[in-house]
Design a protein around this nucleic acid. Structure first.
Length: 230
DNA sequence: GCGACAG
DNA sequence: ATCTTGTCGC
């Protein structure tokens, strides 16, 4: 698939923020998104320590069997420093490159990070969703913006509590394993929160993180290591 | 003003 | 994100 980045690459934080503020209007928060998708993709990026080298991985799974359908990777240089809130500008280029090498077209993109649960409501999952036009959601390991009542969150798998920021529900703390810290799901583009959480839960039958994320994480690290070694 | 801050 | 051994538990 071909993916166009409809904006010049920012060099400053102000430029990056301006891009987010502009693209935010293109986000579809309503969904509902795919109800019974077959192809779901997980995306992640691994970083090297002493350099700006980054490796991205996309793993497409059959949502019903959780079997791997396709994998694609890309290696490159980080084009932006890590700045909380501008995280997408660091990972987007290499992720888009990996996505473009895919032969199949996923029905849903699950990103490692936030969607709407972002200070300007435009996290990585929103950005990737708008760029590709594919429904996308973010699954983060920690919260960024949006608090929730941890004490009131039922300890059982499947339980959820709204993430509220500035009076707005921006995502959900979702328990994927009994008694284990939840993951933080937020809509990216073209899917509603309930649907996104349903898929995340189905993709995480055994571990805290969905299988999409776990496989993409492992693959990106393997590729980075292989590239460093030769 | 100060601290915290997705990966 | 990455650096890192063992260890407790199912």
């Amino acid at each position: 698939m071909r993916i166009d980045i409809p904006h010049p690459w920012p060099r400053t934080e102000a430029d990056a923020i301006a891009i987010q503020d502009r693209l935010r209007a293109l986000v579809d928060r309503a969904g509902p998104g795919p109800q019974d998708p077959r192809l779901v993709a997980g995306l992640d990026v691994a970083y090297a320590e002493g350099s700006d080298r980054v490796a991205a991985a996309v793993v497409v799974l059959d949502a019903r069997t959780l079997e791997v359908v396709e994998r694609a990777t890309a290696v490159g240089e980080a084009t932006f420093p890590y700045v909380p809130g501008l995280f997408a500008f660091r990972e987007l280029p290499v992720l888009v490159e990996a996505l473009s090498r895919l032969q199949t077209v996923p029905e849903l993109l699950l990103c490692d990070g936030q969607g709407l649960a972002h200070p300007r409501r435009f996290g990585l999952a929103c950005h990737l969703g708008v760029l590709t036009g594919i429904p996308a959601a973010g699954v983060a390991k920690t919260t960024f913006v949006g608090g929730y009542d941890a004490a009131a969150l039922d300890p059982r798998r499947g339980a959820g509590a709204p993430l509220v920021d500035a009076g707005e529900t921006v995502g959900r703390a979702l328990r994927t394993r009994d008694g284990v810290k939840p993951v933080y799901v937020s809509t990216g583009h073209g899917i509603d929160l309930d649907t996104a959480c349903r898929h995340v839960l189905a993709l995480a039958p055994k571990y805290r993180l969905p299988q999409t994320t776990r496989l993409a994480d492992r693959l990106s690290r393997d590729v980075l290591r292989a590239h460093a070694t030769g």
